[in-house]
Structures are given as C-alpha cells and as structure tokens.
Design a binder for these strands. Structure first.
Lengths: 203, 203
DNA sequence: GACTAAACGGAGCAGCGCTCCATATGGTTA
DNA sequence: TAACCATATGGAGCGCTGCTCCGTTTAGTC
C-alpha cells in the first residue's frame, strides 16, 4: 500500500533531481485538474497537463488513492501557508479571508473526492480528516480574528463553524449547472460583514 | 429522463411480445449480476447473461440509473411477494424469516448501489427509499409476528429495527474478503431466537 | 403467405487504466 | 572533462469499458 504517503518533498538524497521536480509538477497539475474535472479525471489528462508521461505518474503514485491523498496533503499545506501570506499582502484582513476561502473551496473538491477514492479505508480517511482540522482551523482562526480586530466582520463566528459551513455548501454534486457553491460561499462571507455603521452606500 | 420508471410490466398493448419478454429477462439478469458483481458491472456482462444484445438493454433502459432503478423496484416487489409465499411453504416461520432475509440481503446490494447510480438526484432517491419502507416493513412485520407467535424468536423486535440493522451490516464495502455481511446477518438472526427452554443441545 | 413496423444483435468507435521497454539523463567516478 | 550506468522517462500498446449505428430478423396483421 505504498508507504510514501508524505507531502512529496522527503528523501533529500538518493532520488534524482528530475524525479523530485517531476513529482512536484505532477502534484500541482493533479490539483488543478481535480478542481476543474473532479477526482475521477483521466490520468492521461493529468499527465498532459504536467507535461510528463503517464508512467511517471504511476511510478510516483501507484494508485489513484495515493495521488489524491498526496494532493490532499499538498493542498492542506498550501492553504495553511497561504493564510499568513495573504494577511500580509492583502489590502485588508477581509480581503485576505476571501482569498483564503477561495483556496479552501478549491481544496474541498479534493477532500470530498477523497472519500470515494479511498473507498472503504475509513481509518485512513479519519486520520486525514483530523490532520485537516488540526492544520487549518488555527489558520482560519487567525484570519477571522484579524478581520474582527479590523472591525470588518462581526465577532463570535467560530472557525470550525465557518469551515464546516463552507464545506457543506460545496457538497452539492458537480455537474449540476443550477448550483454554484462559490456563489453561495460568497454570500456567506458577505453575511459575516459587520452591519455597516453609516448608511451611505447601504441603499 | 425516460419516464418508464415502472416495474416493467405495463403497456399491455402496442408493444411486441418479445420486447416485453426481453425486458423481464434483462431485469432478472441484471438483478443477478448486480448481486454477484456490483451495480457497476459492465452492460456487456448483463447482456451476455440475459442472452440479448447490448442495444436491447440500452433501448429499454437508456441510462444505468434507469436500469438500477428498475431492478430496485423489481426486487422490492419480489421481496414483498416472497414474504407470504415463504410463510406458506417453509417448515416454520423462522425458516421463512431466514429465507426472506436472504433475499433481502441480495436486494441491499442494489439499494446501496442506487445512491451512487443516481448521483445527485437526491429527491428521486428519497422517493425510492420511502417506497422501500412502505412496501417491505409490513412484510417483515408479518414474518416477525408469525415467528413470535410460534415461540421461535423473542418478542419485541421491531421490523424497522431489524431491516435497518441488516442494512447497516451490509454496508461494509464489497471486495473486502475479511468481511462477510451474510455471516453477521446469520448471527443476528440466531440472536433473535428465543432462549432455548431446556438445555440439551445448548452445550 | 406476404407485408411492414418493431425489435434485435453485434461490429465498431472512442475513451479509459495500466504496463512494458527502448531511450534519455543525472550523478558519480576516474 | 569524459565515460559510465542506475535511475527516470515517455508513449505505444493491450485489454476493457460505454454507447451507437445499421443490416437483419421477427411478431403481428391483412
């Protein structure tokens, strides 16, 4: 069952540089393709996107579950690191929060697909889920706190609450053009905003 | 979306006899193949089993969801009708109950597969589920009552309780050779038995 | 028996997962 | 620097799938 369930940047010695590089490329390509075409997307397509052969993908990730898991870890990490970065670079904490939520929504496609990809392996899935909460809840909390401190959103919203809410909004199965999770998430975010003090642009 | 979501025996006039006959044959073959190979079994295989061409299946059931739904209805009906029959023909009510549960377990494969086959159409699924309960709970209740009246099993077990218990036992994903739902269901049934009065064969 | 609309079967096409092996390349050693 | 080879690569190829098209067969009717 391929023990290399790591983030993809281990084994600093012994592996050739191109191998390591390709592994990262594949990871990034898979992440993109999963978002746009779901976790059932053909391996061929991911290979094409990454500009590598299919065998390369199969070598690094023998099963689809391995690939999905790797992308999952990769995206959790990216999401976690993006939090502070966005806070530093964005115009306001709320902007940062919105940017972060955008990444988070992308990530959820993978997370929801994970359950299917892992089929019955519910122990493994549970472990991945707790890792998810441990890593991302603090990041979300910091973003919320910052926005609250800046007076942009109402206080009292819990990170778990928000993350779970967004997660549930994104469950509405793909392919249904009548349902756009992103739009609803944006509404949710607007709902967080502090009731505008004056009433110039409120009308 | 193919409105022919019926059991397959409607339209007594206007359709040719062979068409009707084939539809039934396909239904039976699909039911068997679903049990042995899951609801994702290749259409080819079902066609071979039924002794018809693939086009015949696609003509009667344009999508896989249509086929699964039809089998689902068909099996509910078979299960429902089998209840009284078994009660009349078996040596004892408990024997009848066991025979019925056996059919029921077969049926559950289809039911669980239905959720996947229907993908997002949760309204349709909910409707099918209530039909399932409405039709089968009374049958199960009669079998339980009869076995209780005959003093074979302990009283007080509710039909919903039993059906749901069996249903849950059968969730453990297929392909895992370590888990045999049928064995556990048999254990459950044995657990229903009234504590033997004397103690000759109890030890 | 003849006629025709309905029904049929399966070859054929496109797309998929996965593997095999001839080729290319990075790291290492002389 | 050059030569060497274990490591890594790419994509043709195989077997399987879903689904369709169309020449053939057949049930029902006159």
């Amino acid at each position: 069952m391929s023990l290399e369930g790591n983030t993809g940047d281990e084994r600093p010695r012994g592996r050739r540089a191109d191998a390591r590089r390709n592994q990262q490329t594949v990871l990034a390509a898979a992440a993109e393709v999963f978002v746009t075409h779901g976790v059932d997307a053909p391996i061929r397509r991911i290979a094409a996107r990454a500009g590598v052969g299919m065998a390369t993908i199969y070598r690094h990730y023998p099963t689809r579950a391995d690939l999905v898991t790797a992308v999952y870890h990769h995206q959790i990490e990216a999401c976690a690191e993006a939090g502070p970065d966005l806070l530093a670079s964005s115009g306001s904490p709320f902007e940062a929060l919105r940017g972060w939520v955008d990444l988070f929504v992308d990530f959820l496609v993978t997370k929801h697909g994970l359950a299917d990809a892992l089929q019955s392996d519910s122990d493994r899935f549970a472990a991945l889920h707790t890792h998810f909460l441990d890593r991302l809840m603090p990041v979300c909390a910091r973003l919320l706190d910052a926005a609250v401190d800046a007076g942009e959103i109402r206080p009292g919203v819990q990170p778990y609450e928000l993350m779970r809410g967004i997660g549930n909004l994104c469950i509405g199965r793909d392919g249904d053009s009548r349902y756009d999770p992103r739009r609803l998430v944006e509404l949710l975010l607007q709902g967080l905003r502090r009731p505008q003090a004056p009433a110039a642009e409120c009308r």
